[in-house]
Design a protein around this nucleic acid. Structure first.
Length: 315
RNA sequence: GGAGAGAUGGCUGAGUGGUUAAAAGCAGCAGACUGUAAAUCUGCCGGUCAAUGACCUACGGAGGUUCGAACCCUCCUCUCUCCA
């Protein structure tokens, strides 16, 4: 890595949803002359504000915020597109002599940014449609998995037959490139160079976190999540990706009369907790994370500042 | 007061004599994650142990029938619905 990357090494704020990442990032950015870069897959979307806990206009006026509200709900977007955009954004920030402070919860996106994605074939709508038609049929999932096992035994073994997203992607890569995805995945098969970053993880005792998450969900509904969803549904079809996000899916179900508000809140809470758990699982295997425990409501700012400053001159 | 229905593992809820430590879902725990990722998926989930097996505890409580009961019988306790 170049000296410029070291001195301006990006700071990553990680942790489960609702631990206070955005607040910390904002204060860090103000103190360090940093700029915030989002790595949350829902905050990317324009108009999905309440349910994604997007930073307020006030916060965004205080410090430059990047990669929020950059695509419409019906647009095609994915980890690769994100990585490309984010890489450029971070480089521009560094070129300005400032520090990128990455905040979000989509660790898959973060990984794509930091470590790059292998140069695999992109998504192909036609192939996807073809695969979907098979998948929908009775025992379609098993059929697709058997097909995959035949053309790419290694992936067939690794990917569970019920894991339709991964089975479909693996077959898509095979069909569009003629090479099994397991070959593309081999390390050293190309890709972007690593991006340096100091990773700060916020953690909180689960029971405390769950309390906070439950409260936050209630607050979101009180703040008009359903109205926001109603308005978004006039602009985009319900099948658009972010309508599957936590909170939006339930709000949309309320609007179509499938469930009542209480049920929606309960379901949103359930999914939020499960999401936070998955995030922690991911983070535990992430290397070089410097953890700050905020269970007792300790202010993580001083500790985070220390970590940020420590990382400034060295690596 | 009378007539029914029911009490099952943290919750919801199957099971109506053996193959049942007891389906399924939820919650919980652990994990995976290479272009849909707030997605998708996997494993564990009564307890103990020298633990591919053994033992203990368990289907409201107490008895009973039976080689054998969550399942059948009796009584008790509680809950619900209906008639008064």
């Amino acid at each position: 890595m170049t000296p410029a990357q070291v001195t301006n090494a990006a700071i990553v704020i990680a942790g489960p949803t609702g631990v206070g990442k955005s607040d910390l990032a904002l204060r860090l950015a103000e103190s360090l002359g940093g700029e915030i870069v989002n790595y949350d897959s829902v905050q990317i979307y324009r108009g999905f504000d309440i349910g994604s806990a997007k930073p307020s206009a006030e916060a965004r006026g205080r410090v430059p915020h990047h990669l929020f509200d950059i695509v419409d709900a019906n647009a095609e977007f994915n980890a690769s597109a994100y990585a490309t955009l984010a890489r450029t954004t971070c480089e521009e920030i560094a070129a300005r002599g400032r520090r990128a402070i990455l905040v979000g919860g989509t660790f898959f996106y973060l990984r794509a940014l930091l470590h790059g994605l292998p140069p695999m074939p992109a998504r192909d709508a036609v192939v996807r449609e073809r695969l979907r038609r098979i998948a929908v049929r009775p025992r379609g999932a098993e059929r697709l998995h058997r097909w995959l096992s035949k053309v790419d035994p290694q992936s067939g073994k690794r990917i569970a037959s019920a894991d339709r997203h991964r089975v479909e992607r693996a077959l898509e890569v095979w069909l569009t490139s003629g090479r099994p995805i397991s070959e593309w995945e081999r390390p050293g098969s190309g890709g972007t160079e690593e991006m340096a970053a100091t990773k700060i993880g916020l953690q909180m005792e689960r029971s405390r976190l769950v309390e906070r998450l439950d409260e936050r969900v209630t607050a979101m509904y009180a703040a008009g999540l359903i109205d926001e969803t109603r308005s978004l549904l006039t602009q985009f079809p319900r099948t658009a990706r972010p309508f599957g996000a936590i909170g939006y899916a339930e709000a949309a179900a309320v609007m179509s009369g499938e469930i009542d508000v209480d049920a929606a809140i309960a379901e949103t809470r359930r999914r939020t907790r499960a999401y936070a758990k998955r995030q922690m699982t991911w983070l535990r295997s992430e290397r070089n994370v410097q953890w700050i425990d905020v269970t007792s409501c300790d202010d993580p700012f001083p500790a985070a500042m220390r970590l940020a400053e420590m990382s400034e001159g060295s690596d």
